[in-house]
């Protein structure tokens, strides 16, 4: 009888263990089913936002670096460095810029004329600046008078030491400069009254937000109008 009771106790124990094991299996499967998707979702959240913020930061850094390159070019011209100069991979902090000073001839006062090109690239972001610079002869010593003008920017991936790319940049910038010539010619050829009335007449097409201040804007345009 004792042996029989002992066997029954043993069986009860085995059944008890078996119950715990079953619950454990269901728990493990369930927890994995909950935790894995939760962890996946948490890891995905915020990634795209961080990427966008980094992208903007890189954009700004590329632009700032290219401007540093442009300023370095002007400094070189002020220091009376003359002739073609192509400087690549110039470091400013951790970032690098390229600088290209390309002579284009002589001006009316025998000043040297240059294309001042600078670009920077950070990862997939590009920024290039193209301007014209006039370098006067030093009298008697440096610093030389340098006048830079018509700054034009692009985010296209132009290589400023490649003549084909420089020509493309010149063409793109040239389109805008041709339009500038058109507008300047129009300003020169029109009388102040004609110019003013032509611009004032556009008021009918303008958005309502702009209409109340348009007369003031036309006055400012008129005050800056070029004359022959």
């Amino acid at each position: 009888m004792d042996v029989e009771n002992e066997m029954v106790d043993q069986e009860m124990y085995i059944v008890h263990i078996s119950n715990k094991k079953g619950i454990a299996i269901v728990m493990v499967i369930g927890l994995v089913a909950i935790i894995v998707p939760v962890l996946y979702l948490l890891s995905r959240l915020g990634t795209s936002h961080v990427k966008l913020a980094v992208k903007y930061q890189e954009n700004l850094q590329t632009e700032t670096t290219a401007f540093s390159g442009s300023n370095a070019g002007i400094s070189r011209l002020r220091g009376n460095l003359r002739g073609y100069q192509n400087l690549t991979n110039q470091l400013i902090g951790d970032e690098s810029y390229n600088l290209n000073l390309r002579p284009t001839g002589k001006g009316f006062f025998q000043q040297d004329l240059y294309f001042l090109l600078s670009n920077s690239k950070i990862k997939s972001h590009h920024y290039a600046i193209m301007a014209e610079a006039e370098q006067f002869n030093p009298e008697p010593d440096p610093p030389v008078l340098v006048i830079s003008r018509d700054y034009w920017n692009t985010i296209e991936p132009y290589e400023i030491d490649q003549i084909a790319d420089v020509l493309s940049m010149q063409n793109d910038r040239g389109v805008d400069l041709l339009r500038l010539d058109e507008t300047r010619d129009y300003e020169k050829n029109a009388t102040p009254a004609q110019y003013s009335s032509e611009m004032q007449a556009k008021s009918d097409w303008l958005p309502e937000e702009l209409v109340p201040d348009w007369p003031e804007i036309v006055d400012n345009l008129k005050s800056e109008k070029l004359s022959m």
């Binding site: 079953g22 269901v26 728990m27 369930g30 909950i34």
Partner: peptide, 13 residues
């Protein structure tokens, strides 16, 4: 696994 085990496991889950 018995139904009781699944029910207990599900309740805890």
């Amino acid at each position: 696994i018995t139904l009781v085990e699944i029910m207990v496991g599900s309740a805890i889950l």
